[in-house]
């Protein structure tokens, strides 16, 4: 029988919602044996100072990320498309956070 070791514990990415109405924001990662323990560890590691009202944990292995090698092809073409930014409109007074 193989003894479980710490290396067997998967990595989890942690997302915390700071307040009602805000979205969950990635705050870091941690190791935990399973999802319920990951939520609890996240509570202890990332919300000790009342940083959040809700926590998501996601197995890091389940995240598909864009590759740094494709950075130029992925992101640079957006650099000169200024017409994609809504900067040609006058924002009426009293409308914030657009």
């Amino acid at each position: 029988m193989s003894e479980p070791t710490r290396r067997d514990w998967p990595l989890w990415e942690v997302f915390v919602r700071a307040r009602r109405g805000l979205s969950h924001v990635h705050v870091g990662s941690l190791h935990a044996p399973d999802a319920p323990m990951a939520v609890r560890n996240a509570r202890d590691v990332y919300t000790r100072r009342q940083e959040g009202v809700s926590i998501w944990v996601v197995p890091a292995a389940q995240i598909t990320a864009s590759s740094p090698d494709e950075k130029d092809a992925f992101f640079d073409p957006a650099a000169d498309k200024i017409y994609r930014h809504p900067t040609f409109y006058d924002v009426p007074e009293g409308v914030d956070h657009l």
């Binding site: 710490r6 190791h31 202890d44």
Partner: peptide, 12 residues
Amino acid sequence: APQLEEDIAVGN
């Protein structure tokens, strides 16, 4: 503790 996360949990 068995792991860093548990150090913090037990410390809390």
